[in-house]
């Protein structure tokens, strides 16, 4: 129908300018809701005396979550996107282009991710500040924290790319993402700091890369210790290196299979 055609055209132009922002905001509102729920939860746990739990004050505990939520949720649907390209065989189109596929994805998604991170962190901070209160952070430490967050986002990205490629064998992209998300929630320490875990679980978590996405950068943020900085940043870099190697290998294997079978 002509009519709807014009509605569509005007809609598209509105969306092009506003869609991204609106979409981001509405996603972040959901994060705000989770922060609110956890403020209530921690309020009850800390009780009126509001002391320390494993070295965290209630404000540290909540602001910890503000940062981990923002890191974990801001990359969006990278895993599903790549999984889709793998399953449809569209990934083959990138083979004859003069760029590295993963590098290209990284560049194009990191801009979106950072913007979304800022908005999500902003909404989360607002909720935390209004319903609980602020957090003391030394201005000087901010650049280091930002570097750690950036490395965390990169590591998060690489793991999702790896899983996205593995969809070639795992079949179901949304199921894969679902499970990965839950692993980061718990083993990555997104919902609560690893100190609260029983020791055996804390050990498992320490041996895996997921805590370098959520727990470590967030701990630097709420409880900055100079003695931790170098170890956290180096371990983050190490995991990034390892992931780059694995992604490269798996990508090559997958591409070979796709070009052999024709998608």
């Amino acid at each position: 129908m002509t009519l709807t055609k014009y509605i569509e055209i005007s809609k598209i132009s509105v969306y092009n300018s506003l869609a991204y922002l609106l979409d981001f905001f509405s996603g972040s509102l959901f994060i705000g809701l989770i922060i609110f729920v956890f403020i209530q939860l921690w309020n009850v746990v800390y009780g009126p005396s509001a002391g320390l739990i494993e070295g965290y004050t209630i404000n540290m505990m909540v602001w910890y979550l503000v940062l981990t939520e923002a890191i974990v949720t801001s990359p969006g649907k990278i895993l599903e996107e790549i999984g889709d390209e793998i399953k449809t065989g569209n990934i083959a189109q990138n083979l004859n282009k003069p760029y590295n596929y993963v590098g290209f994805k990284y560049a194009s998604s990191m801009a979106r991710t950072l913007l979304r991170f800022l908005i999500t962190f902003g909404v989360g901070s607002l909720v935390a500040y209004v319903f609980l209160g602020g957090l003391e952070v030394k201005f000087l430490t901010l650049p280091i924290i930002l570097v750690s967050v950036f490395l965390a986002l990169t590591l998060h990205f690489l793991i999702m790319v790896l899983l996205g490629i593995l969809v070639f064998w795992l079949e179901d992209a949304s199921a894969t993402y679902f499970i990965y998300q839950k692993i980061v929630f718990v083993l990555g320490g997104m919902l609560m700091p690893l100190e609260i875990f029983p020791t055996w679980l804390e050990k498992i978590s320490a041996a895996l890369p997921f805590s370098y996405i959520a727990y470590h950068p967030a701990k630097l943020f709420v409880n900055f210790q100079w003695s931790n900085v170098s170890e956290v940043l180096l371990k983050q870099l190490m995991w990034i290196m390892i992931m780059i190697v694995i992604v490269t290998i798996v990508y090559q294997i997958c591409i070979r299979k796709i070009s052999l079978n024709g998608g």
Partner: peptide, 18 residues
Amino acid sequence: EFKTRRKEAGLKGSIKSI
């Protein structure tokens, strides 16, 4: 008859039409 929303060109028009 259908009511259709009219919109002026550009971003300014988009915002205005909202």
